[in-house]
Design a protein around this nucleic acid. Sequence first.
DNA 1: ATATATTGTGGGTAGTTGTGGGTAATAATC
DNA 2: GATTATTACCCACAACTACCCACAATATAT
Lengths: 154, 154
Amino acid sequence: MTLNQNTFTGEYSYALDAKGRVNIPAKFRNVLTADNDQSFVITRGMDPCVWVYPIIVWQSIEDELRKLSSLSQVNRSFVRSTVRYASSVQYDKQGRIAVSSNLIQYADLGKEVLILGMVNKIEIWNPDILDSVDKQSQKIDSSQFDELANQIIL
Amino acid sequence: MTLNQNTFTGEYSYALDAKGRVNIPAKFRNVLTADNDQSFVITRGMDPCVWVYPIIVWQSIEDELRKLSSLSQVNRSFVRSTVRYASSVQYDKQGRIAVSSNLIQYADLGKEVLILGMVNKIEIWNPDILDSVDKQSQKIDSSQFDELANQIIL
DNA sequence: ATATATTGTGGGTAGTTGTGGGTAATAATC
DNA sequence: GATTATTACCCACAACTACCCACAATATAT
């Protein structure tokens, strides 16, 4: 398969078990480069969902944060809010990662979860919440998409 | 796991015991390089919290301080306030460090504390104070905050 | 169509981690 | 020098996590 490395697309339905574990879809694991050491960084998403980055991708974020001096108040609160809920996880022999109860609560995850590929990261959603967020964002008026047109070619 | 060395992320709830000891989260201890000799430098944070640096990281800060000319009044008082409350601690067999009563007072720590990874250092907070500081700073600098987010968050 | 490999899900077990308390060594005070 | 306070070091235990195995469902190959 010649898909881009560390790049994820598609939607998958999976189970979050009693121990707080979810499977990472095999298709996602197979495009993970070896230097990730089968590991991700899992954190709060900007939407009410969980974000999962390949560790290599996350490290580039960390490197940027490291450059910010803690003398500045804004810098401090930005670093804090960015890394506060982030932690690294390695998937087990069965391909599952553990989701902390903190994140399960934040994204209001139940037994059934939706896993979305989002190009450079993965999102884990409660299906109902994704639905309502989706409907809401359809109301966003098309002028905002016009703005995006300047930045990306589809 | 291939996380960056001497780099900390995530939020953890821990207990400060009657003897003034707190556990350093295992995840943090495990990314500490051996040359730190299981030791940190603990000092006052710029926010009302306690800062905990790996000794190796702290040494590089000292190197920077050394470069600041003492001709400037601002420099002098900055160096003074930075170094004044700093002291080194080694964690015990159970992974705990002792927090001096001076610092406990400064950060107003009770039995329950929050430990935050802040990339190159660790913060120890009273949860209530973190809450209010967090809310306040989000009001004040939201525009600068967004700017940083646009540059750094992937 | 059948056999083989891969993938998703559940659960058990051994080791690790967090927390409290105890005892000995050291320092401080009278 | 004796007494008290403080600190460093050790042990115990409950809770949790990482790791392993089992098995059913799905996909792939023969």
